[in-house]
Design a binder for these strands. Structure first.
Lengths: 305, 305
DNA sequence: CGTGATGTTGACGTTCTTCAATAAATGTGG
DNA sequence: CCACATTTATTGAAGAACGTCAACATCACG
């Protein structure tokens, strides 16, 4: 299908808001295929969204790029930890494998994300990073990084900040996993994906999912069927449009504030009413329903000493 | 109110551990009650289970202790980040507060745990730490820590390791939250608490819970009723004995490997059978049942490229 | 001793999973 | 390029697991 073709084309190399003024290397796909690419510290910092240390141009340190094909592993559980990884392009998942060999998806890293932090402790990786599309990854050998930290105190500081950021992200994930309904989980998953895409310069309202329903379900603590059903429900309500992995967010506000969908029988009425009116009213309708089943679980908790 | 005032007063302007020629003080509880206690870097590192840097005795740095009464907050959400905290004694919870004021428990720190990491990013705390019992906390002002890191590279390295450890812990938490049944969550919660206690030199088999059923439920993504019922079920099965907050773990192996309990009607038969036999057989019985409902959710996932 | 916080237990309902059947998409080898 | 197998996605029906509501018991604390 056209969709499919478009999708693959896009995942492998989306048109990039390039900062073309770079002298050494421009981030263009064509340049890479014949060999490796290298990035300097400044590029790395930019990618990680941390302030670059004032470059002392003499001791210019370069970092190697490595390409992974979809399905390949960047690192595996138990593997010796030697290097951190920064995603320059492509999409991945990180997973935990439990005692029975089942995957538990922990995150879906993309451009600008840092991989491998979990290996610092124990010198072994606790999780596994798998490429969901072809990826371009920058190697940041931990020894090199440590040495650099000694020269640039800001760098060390920035790395603490990145790790802290990651920790907060996981905390929010924990909160979401234990407190939200299936619908709310899926809704937030979609909006947060959208936000990440738009931060990278892509459309935050229309994008392709790089992962299967199963992987989404694992990430959110749901079954793939529940994910599929929830997406279908959102689609019927006009909150999103979904065709396989092609997603368009139609009512981001409703998705963000949604806590629980009305029961199916009530929903039918709504969509009937919708068909009578202009579709712009959907947002209001749904918003009105949002907040009905508020505080189903922790509502008795009051944050007072 | 008084609490709030106290909290703010204390956290907003903690007395700084100045470089003072204070004599080193032994960690005896009695010595503290009339005033503050101070710890040197070596004690701090010991507490954090990281290698202490070879002490250059001249620039001996001391860190102040602060005591918190049960219910007081060590830091609150949004508060400016100035210092890290190390638990020297006592029990706490860290919580997130959602948009409706509901608490989400993230962890139950105890002796040797590091608090406040989430504040490094953004310079504001993303979570709240509340004392569940009277606590003795060591202040580790971030500025001081950063400065020390410049002198002792190992210290910085160790701090990366601690943060990585924390990250891995949270990853495992995510895995547990999304993959396990209520029974398995409670069982693992108990055994992991036991392990932490025994690492601290207390009994790992018999201890007091410092938190309410509600807090456990929040931590595990369950309601307080489910927690209570599950504990009762374990009690009936002879896996634990529970009386209010006093817990004794009777069959740790079964608790660790348990995935799902047999339905209540089946359970009755078991306990009848048990009463006929010696209670030592409980473990085998339950173990036999464990593994029945294996792989209910992610079992079709195969980790192959 | 009484009051509020905490814990237990039951009955019931809803959400989500499980199982199953089918369809659509993707990849493979001829 | 087409048949084929494989993976992925959709949808339905049935039931289990867990949450909700409620009543009561117990504990902690002033």
């Amino acid at each position: 299908m056209t969709t499919a073709a478009l999708t693959t084309g896009r995942t492998s190399q989306p048109t990039r808001p390039v900062k073309s003024s770079f002298p050494a290397i421009a981030n263009e796909a064509g340049w890479r295929c014949h060999g490796n690419l290298w990035s300097n510290l400044q590029e790395v910092c930019e990618l990680l969204r941390i302030p670059a240390p004032a470059a002392s141009a003499d001791e210019e340190q370069l970092f190697q790029h490595v390409r992974f094909k979809a399905g390949q592993r960047v690192h595996t559980i138990g593997q010796d930890f030697e290097t951190l990884y920064i995603v320059n392009s492509g999409f991945l998942k990180t997973v935990l494998i439990d005692e029975y060999g089942n995957e538990q998806v922990l995150s879906f890293p993309m451009k600008g994300d840092l991989l491998g932090i979990d290996g610092i402790h124990n010198q072994h990786h606790a999780s596994e990073a798998v490429a969901l599309s072809d990826c371009d990854i920058i190697l940041l050998p931990y020894k090199t990084f440590s040495a650099l930290g000694r020269s640039y105190a800001e760098l060390e500081q920035a790395m603490f900040s990145v790790m802290s950021r990651e920790l907060v992200r996981e905390q929010l994930m924990i909160g979401m996993l234990s407190a939200l309904s299936a619908e709310a989980k899926v809704a937030r998953f979609l909006t947060s994906l959208g936000e990440r895409f738009s931060q990278l310069g892509y459309s935050g309202k229309s994008f392709n999912l790089r992962m299967t329903r199963h992987e989404i379900g694992s990430y959110l603590g749901l079954t793939l069927e529940t994910v599929s059903r929830t997406l279908s429900a959102f689609n019927e309500l006009g909150l999103i449009s979904v065709d396989q992995r092609q997603i368009a967010l139609l009512d981001i506000h409703a998705l963000k504030t949604l806590r629980r969908l009305p029961p199916a029988r009530a929903r039918i009425k709504i969509s009937e009413k919708i068909s009578e009116k202009v579709s712009e009213k959907v947002s209001e309708k749904v918003s009105a329903l949002v907040g009905k089943n508020l505080l189903p679980q922790w509502n008795k908790e009051v944050a007072v000493v």
